[in-house]
Design a binder for these strands. Structure first.
Lengths: 197, 197
DNA sequence: AAGGCAGTGTGCAGTCACTGCATGAAAGGT
DNA sequence: ACCTTTCATGCAGTGACTGCACACTGCCTT
C-alpha cells in the first residue's frame, strides 16, 4: 500500500500528477481511473496499489501535519483557548507546501465530498490534536479533572474542523484565490468578533 | 426521483424499513442493494428511483428541519452567541422524531461516512441557518455592516457542524446510548467551559 | 366507451470504482 | 550468479449506480 522505494515513489508521483492534470483539464467527474492509468501508462491494478481511492489520488499523498513549534507555543500561550487553537491548523505554505496545492484547492472547492474527505484526513491528526489541547488545558489548570479535559479537547478538535471548513469555504468570497494562510487569518478575525458577542 | 403519490410513498417506506432491518441484522456493509430489493420485492431499478443512494435509504427520507419557535427565541435572545446557537440544532425527539431514529443512530455511529453524510444533509439547512443567525446579529447590532454579518453567520454555521459532530461522536462515552437531546445538552456544558477559558 | 396522459415499476445492458489472487519481472544485496 | 524483496500486472469478479425503452395502472376528458 504505502510503498517506499524510489521506483514506487516515482509511480505514485506520476499518478498524482496525471490525476490532477486530467481533473483540471476535463473536470473531476469525467476523469476515470482507467483514463488516468492510460495517461501514466500503468494498469488499473497498479493504480490501486498506490492509492486506495480515486479521491486520494487527487488529494495527493502527503498529509498535513502539525507544526511542532506551533504546538509548543500553543501549550504555553494564555490567550482565549479557541483563538489560540487556530495556531494548530496545519497550513502548508511556500516550499513546504505540497506542490500544486492551489490547483488542488480549486477542484476540491467544487466538490464538497472531496472537501469532506480532506477534512476527514486532517482529522487523522485528531488524536494528536486532542493530546496537545489536553496538555494546554492541563498547563493552564493543573487541578482540573481528567474527564473534563478530555471532553473539552475533543470538542475543540471538532470546532477546529468547522473552522477549517469555513476557511476553505467560499464564504469569504473576498478571499477567493488567496492562500490558505490568509484565509485562516481572516477566519481568525471573524471568530474574534463572534466570540465578542 | 422524489415521488409523491401514496403508492410510491408506500414503496419508499418499505425500502427504508427493509434497509434498516437488514443493516441492523447483518451489518451495514454486508447489506447489498440487491438484497434490499429482494426483501421488498422490487427491482433494483425501482430502488434507485426512490433513493439516489444506498446510504440515503438507510438515513431515511425525512430531513431534519429547524424548529420555528427555537429560531424566534434565538433571534431575540441575548446570551453568548455561540451558546445560544445550539438552540438551533434540530433535535428530533419523541413523536416528532422519524421513526426508529435510535436504531439508525446505532448504525450511523459505526460508520463515519454515514455520519459525514448525515451532517452534510443537515447543512442543506445551511442557508436557512445562516439567515437566522444573520437576523440575530442584526437584531443585536442594527448598525453592523452587512459583509461582517454574513461572514460571521457563515462561520457560526460551520461551527455548528462541528458541535453536531461532537454531540454525535463517542467522545462523550458516558452519553453512549442516550438521546440526541441529552448529548446536545452535554455538548453545551462542555462548550461553556471551553468558552470560559 | 375510447383515447390520452401522468405516475410508477421493470428489464437490460452498460459504466465505473474497487478487490483478491496468483504470477512475473526487476532491483539490490550477498 | 543466487536469492529475497519490491513492484507491477492480468484476470475475473462484486457492487453501486445510470439511461433507456417499455409496460401497467389509474384517472380524466371527450
Amino acid at each position: 500500500m504505502a510503498q517506499t522505494g524510489t521506483r514506487a515513489a516515482a509511480t505514485t508521483a506520476a499518478i498524482e500528477e496525471a490525476a490532477l492534470d486530467l481533473a483540471l483539464a476535463h473536470g473531476y467527474e469525467t476523469v476515470t481511473v482507467d483514463r488516468i492509468c492510460e495517461q501514466v501508462g500503468i494498469s488499473q491494478r497498479t493504480f490501486f496499489n498506490h492509492f486506495p481511492t480515486k479521491d486520494d489520488a487527487i488529494l495527493g499523498r502527503e498529509m498535513p501535519s502539525i507544526d511542532e513549534r506551533a504546538a509548543r507555543a500553543f501549550v504555553l500561550a494564555d490567550g482565549p483557548l479557541l483563538l489560540d487553537a487556530l495556531l494548530l491548523i496545519p497550513v502548508p505554505e511556500g516550499d513546504a507546501a505540497p506542490p500544486r496545492m492551489d490547483e488542488r484547492m480549486r477542484i476540491i472547492a467544487g466538490h464538497p465530498h472531496l472537501l469532506a474527505r480532506q477534512i476527514e484526513r486532517v482529522s487523522t491528526l485528531e488524536a494528536e490534536l486532542r493530546e496537545i489541547i489536553s496538555q494546554r488545558i492541563a498547563h493552564a489548570d493543573p487541578a482540573g479533572d481528567d474527564a473534563a479535559r478530555e471532553s473539552e479537547s475533543a470538542l475543540i478538535t471538532c470546532l477546529m474542523g468547522g473552522m477549517m471548513r469555513f476557511a476553505t469555504s467560499e464564504a469569504s468570497a473576498a478571499r477567493r484565490g488567496e492562500s490558505m494562510a490568509s484565509r485562516v487569518e481572516e477566519a481568525r478575525g471573524v471568530l474574534e468578533r463572534v466570540l465578542a458577542r
